[in-house]
Simulated scan of single mutants.
Amino acid sequence: MSTPDGAYAKPFLTIPEQIRRLRGRGMDCGADEFASGVLERYGYYRLSGYWHLYRARPEPPAARFGADGREIRLDSFVPKTRLAHVVALYEFDHELRTRLGDIISMVETAFRFHIGHRRLRRALP
Rank of each mutant, 00 (worst) to 15 (best):
L22K: 01
V78R: 04
K10R: 15
L74T: 08
H117M: 13
H52E: 15
M106S: 13
D68V: 06
P4T: 06
G37W: 02
Y54I: 09
M1Y: 13
F34T: 08
D102E: 15
L83G: 01
R82P: 12
A110V: 06
H117D: 05
A62T: 07
R122K: 13
V87N: 02
R20G: 09
A67Q: 14
I103P: 07
F34I: 11
E33C: 05
I15A: 05
C29W: 03
G6E: 13
D102F: 11
F77E: 00
Y44N: 08
A31Q: 10
D5G: 11
Y8P: 05
G66P: 06
R57N: 05
L89A: 09
T98R: 10
I19W: 04
D68M: 05
C29L: 04
L83A: 03
E33A: 12
C29N: 02
R82T: 14
P79M: 04
P60L: 11
R73V: 14
A7E: 15
R99M: 08
V78Y: 02
G30V: 08
W51V: 06
D93N: 03
I15C: 05
T81F: 04
I15H: 02
D5P: 07
D5Y: 09
R70M: 15
L47N: 00
A123F: 08
L53D: 15
E40P: 07
R20K: 12
A35V: 04
M27R: 00
D75F: 08
Q18K: 04
I15K: 01
R20H: 06
A84V: 14
T3V: 12
H117K: 06
F65L: 10
I72P: 06
Y44P: 05
H85E: 15
R64P: 11
F34L: 10
P11V: 10
G43P: 00
A31S: 12
R25C: 10
E91G: 00
L47A: 00
H117N: 12
R57A: 14
R55M: 09
G49I: 11
Q18N: 04
S2T: 15
Q18D: 04
L100S: 04
G37K: 02
F113D: 15
P16N: 02
L120T: 10
L124N: 05
G24T: 01
A35G: 03
E40Y: 09
A35W: 04
I19Y: 02
L96P: 05
G43A: 04
L89Q: 12
L124W: 03
C29H: 05
